[in-house]
Structure formats: structure tokens, C-alpha cells
């Protein structure tokens, strides 16, 4: 065991200096979600399947806007799976902690 201790003394330290030196997040990390409203067909499947009730539809059908509550979202990725037009994408942005709930509500509006 002593040998192992001394070996580790010479080795590079395993700890990551996280907030100061950031590692690249892995591909496929589910972070903040982005909805491309140009592609959205307003079917409402994401709202129906979301386990946390984090997506809200304002309006109806193809004219509907979407509101995402990131504070409720638990980043399971089911909405992206359910979406028939593949307009929901997860970005790898994961540092989403915030002091205000309001900042965590994102509205996706259709540009007319």
C-alpha cells in the first residue's frame, strides 16, 4: 500500500478544477432545450409526454406558442423523442442555476 501511496504522489492529480477550467461536455448531453418554432406543427405531443409538465402550449394548432419551464424540466429528453417534426433539440449548455425562477422560463414564439 505504501508503494501505491508514493506512486500517487508523483502522479497527476485526478481532481478537476471545475468552475475555473471547464471540460468540454460530452456529445449528446441533454442541457437547455431549444425549439425551432419554424418547424413546429403544434401537435402537442411534447406537452402530452413530458413527465414533468414543463412545456406549456399557448394557443392552438399551428399558431400555438410554446413556453418551457426549465425549473421543472428534468432533462429526460422525451419531448425531443416524441416530436414528429424533430423541432426540439437539446443543447449541451448545462450551467442553468439561477436565483430567479422567471429567468428559467423560456418562451418560444412564432415569428410572423
Amino acid at each position: 500500500m505504501e508503494h501505491e501511496l508514493l506512486r500517487n504522489l508523483r502522479k497527476k492529480v485526478a481532481t478537476e478544477k471545475y468552475p475555473f477550467i471547464k471540460k468540454k461536455p460530452p456529445e449528446g448531453l441533454r442541457g437547455k432545450l431549444i425549439i425551432d418554432m419554424a418547424k413546429c406543427i403544434g401537435c402537442g405531443l411534447c406537452v402530452f409526454d413530458c413527465p414533468a409538465g414543463a412545456i406549456e402550449m399557448i394557443g392552438k394548432g399551428t399558431a400555438a406558442d410554446l413556453k418551457v419551464y426549465l425549473d421543472r424540466c428534468h432533462f429526460c429528453g422525451q419531448c425531443a423523442e416524441s416530436c414528429p417534426s424533430k423541432c426540439i433539440v437539446y443543447s449541451t449548455e448545462f450551467e442553468l442555476a439561477n436565483f430567479d425562477k422567471k429567468n428559467l422560463t423560456i418562451e418560444f414564439k412564432r415569428k410572423l
Binding site: 402530452f48 409526454d49 413527465p51 422525451q78
Partner: peptide, 13 residues
């Protein structure tokens, strides 16, 4: 009270 799909994530948790 959740659908089978939603329960996937519940079971995981």
C-alpha cells in the same frame, strides 16, 4: 396517473 412513457423516467428516478 402517468402514462407508460412518462413512467420510464419515474422508474429511473
Amino acid at each position: 396517473v402517468r402514462t407508460y412513457i412518462q413512467n420510464l423516467y419515474l422508474a429511473e428516478r
